[in-house]
């Protein structure tokens, strides 16, 4: 197994590991990945991946509008808002 780039993985997950914990998580990740590595022993070349045990869905909607909530219902848990917007520090592109 190759090195795990813990900085990259944590950044992708938008987590900022405190430096003193980086090693802890990194080691733990290495251990677990090694532990699950036994799957590589199985020949699955002819096996289709299984995403879900429910095979078919009956949940396909008609194109109808339903409104069951107010704008306020959606916004009232917001940590910060400005009128009916969610508010965040300026996004620079």
């Amino acid at each position: 197994m190759s090195e795990i780039d813990i900085k990259r993985i944590s950044y992708l997950a938008k987590l900022k590991l405190p430096s003193e914990k980086e090693e802890f998580y990194s080691q733990s990740l290495v251990d677990i990945i090694q532990w699950v590595d036994n799957l590589k022993k199985i020949d699955t070349s002819n096996v289709k991946p299984l995403h879900n045990v429910t095979e078919a869905t009956v949940s396909i909607r008609n194109d109808d509008i339903e409104k069951n909530n107010s704008t306020e219902d959606v916004l009232n848990n917001a940590p910060e808002r400005a009128q009916n917007f969610f508010k965040v520090p300026k996004v620079v592109e």
């Binding site: 987590l15 998580y25 990740l29 699950v36």
Partner: peptide, 29 residues
């Protein structure tokens, strides 16, 4: 945090097939 890191890793480029896809295949088995 640990599980988010594991999950992010097994889905990330270069590891998806070896871990995630393989796990889904074994799930069928």
């Amino acid at each position: 945090t640990r599980r988010i890191l594991i999950g992010t890793y097994v889905l990330s480029a270069g590891y998806y097939d070896a871990y995630y896809r393989q796990a889904q295949k074994v799930r069928r088995l």
